[in-house]
């Protein structure tokens, strides 16, 4: 069954969508969209380093993404405005990554594959990494769901219940780094944040509970992966961006649904 590249691609897309849904919900609730962007952009530096050091791209990307996320978390308490800080770090990490890649003269690497993903080239090994990473992310968030939600609502409320919001933030940061690392192959560093945010945002008008929003986001994300891949195959368009386009159309539809419901009732 896994011999067919379309099957592998579809499974890879679904795996990323499942991990991105609960994490993406938190990214939206906590207004961390830029944070996700910065972490994802930093991953290209990780890719360059791991190619240079000949280690696994997954490990390199994850290490740099984690370092980036931690740097932002630490610096954000030091008086810079968050959007300035993220703007500086995200784009300089991307630029350094692109420059670093150019030094790798020995290896001809297809930069486009890392910027926009190369989901059709997912191997069985990649699939194992993607599903393993996705399972870790879903497991982490499911385990900490209620404390995470409490800390998201109000930090002092969390403290009074014996929850340390900084620890919960760290768990989200770790989950984000893992997601970025596994999603590179699927949608590329430039569109990872889209897979986090768009399905969650599209799920919002349909949901009445936080859990419901995460589940609906997972369904929308997985559906977008399946439909996007099919569309890309038929229309001969780049697969990763097509998946994101389908998710964006879902967002448009649910937003319209909300506004008609509001107008009607």
């Amino acid at each position: 069954m896994l011999d067919d590249f379309m099957t592998r691609a579809t499974l890879a897309g679904i795996g990323v969508a499942l991990a991105a849904a609960p994490l993406g919900s938190f990214v939206v609730w906590r207004r961390m969209a830029y944070f996700g962007d910065a972490t994802a952009h930093a991953a290209i530096l990780g890719v360059a380093l791991s190619l240079a050091l000949q280690i696994s791209v997954f490990a390199g990307a994850m290490a740099v993404a984690l370092a980036m996320a931690l740097t932002v978390t630490i610096l954000s308490g030091r008086g810079y405005a968050m959007d300035t800080l993220l703007g500086v770090l995200a784009h300089s990490a991307l630029a350094f990554g692109l420059v670093a890649v150019s030094f790798l003269s020995g290896i001809r690497i297809d930069l486009m594959a890392y910027l926009f993903g190369d989901i059709l080239a997912v191997s069985r090994g990649d699939l194992a990494v993607i599903w393993g990473g996705a399972a870790m992310v879903v497991g982490l968030i499911a385990w900490r769901w209620s404390p995470l939600l409490t800390a998201t609502l109000n930090e002092d409320l969390a403290y009074s219940s014996g929850i340390d919001p900084r620890r919960e933030q760290l768990i989200l940061t770790l989950a984000l780094a893992i997601t970025v690392a596994v999603a590179i192959k699927v949608v590329g560093v430039l569109l990872i944040a889209a897979m986090l945010i768009i399905p969650a945002a599209a799920a919002r008008p349909l949901a009445r509970t936080p859990e419901g929003m995460a589940f609906i986001a997972a369904a929308i994300g997985a559906g977008s992966a399946v439909v996007g891949l099919r569309t890309a195959y038929v229309l001969d368009t780049p697969a990763g961006p097509t998946i994101v386009c389908v998710a964006a159309i879902c967002f448009l539809l649910t937003s319209l649904f909300r506004s008609t419901r509001r107008a009607g009732g």
């Binding site: 939206v28 906590r30 209620s146 609502l153 945002a201 919002r204 509970t209 936080p210």
Partner: peptide
């Protein structure tokens, strides 16, 4: 307590936090 408008949560779900 500011609840972001993107976070759907019913009164009961809120009361039952953190579990």
């Amino acid at each position: 307590l500011h609840i972001d408008p993107t976070l759907p949560i019913s009164v009961e779900r809120f009361l039952r936090l953190p579990g």
